[in-house]
Design a protein around this nucleic acid. Structure first.
Lengths: 122, 122
DNA sequence: ACTAATGTATTATTGCCATAATACAATAAT
DNA sequence: ATTATTGTATTATGGCAATAATACATTAGT
């Protein structure tokens, strides 16, 4: 995992988003263990408090739950919740992308065309 | 224009990005006049200093230039620069979108398919 | 010359992000 | 019971974003 951060957006939100992605993609399995606050802080090179704040975001939406003591945090194993997460994130990303392209003057058909012809490493 | 802002990202960056979009799309014509600092501040409901900071970003990339006095600010009329702006913004948006979808578990082909079937207002 | 409109600069204040350094709370393992 | 591991809470500090209130600089219009 890379753990580089953009400037201009709070790190705790970026961390929350990345973990959300890992959950949505299944990179962290349903019911699986989330790395500890201190581990993530170490990996990401940030203060534990910052990580905790990120994880509090995920708990607020019931995506993870804490088990104190030697437990750590665990991803929800609710299939509906996880499916909804993935669906919502994909849908949001797509809607945002289309909106952005529209602002740039690309109507949907043009955006689709652009995406089709898109090649990495121009 | 709506002028709502996301939390978590500095407003001055969001303002700069929106004006960049307006320039890239031609909503503000090449060589055209950019609203004044005080006008934008009024419309967006923010402090003039915040707007100035945003516009300083655009000047740093030569997209706009200031004419003091009764002038105001004007968009560059350099066709190459404007074409490059639009190209770069579209490319960045597309690359970011693909990266995001990939993190969610959608390879490019799936992303293209998803976009094709995407309907607003689900 | 004067005025109005615009960009630019300065200073102070408030609030949130992030860090730092601890301490406390709960539970599994021994 | 003790210990180690983990989550949680507290307090202090520094930095940047944003606001606020002015003041100054430049130029067009009159």
């Amino acid at each position: 995992m890379s753990w580089k951060f953009d400037d201009g957006t709070p790190i705790y939100l970026q961390i929350a988003e990345r973990i959300r992605e890992q959950i949505a993609s299944g990179e962290i399995s349903p019911g699986g263990k989330v790395p500890t606050v201190r581990e993530i802080a170490e990996l990401a090179g940030v203060n534990p408090n910052t990580v905790q704040r990120a994880l509090a975001e995920l708990e607020a939406s019931a995506l993870v739950a804490a088990e104190r003591g030697n437990g750590g945090r665990f991803v929800s194993d609710n299939p509906d919740l996880l499916a909804k997460l993935k669906h919502d994130m994909a849908r949001t990303a797509t809607g945002d992308f289309l909106a952005k392209m529209r602002k740039l003057g690309f109507e949907k058909a043009k955006t689709v065309g652009y995406l089709n012809e898109y090649k990495e490493e121009s």
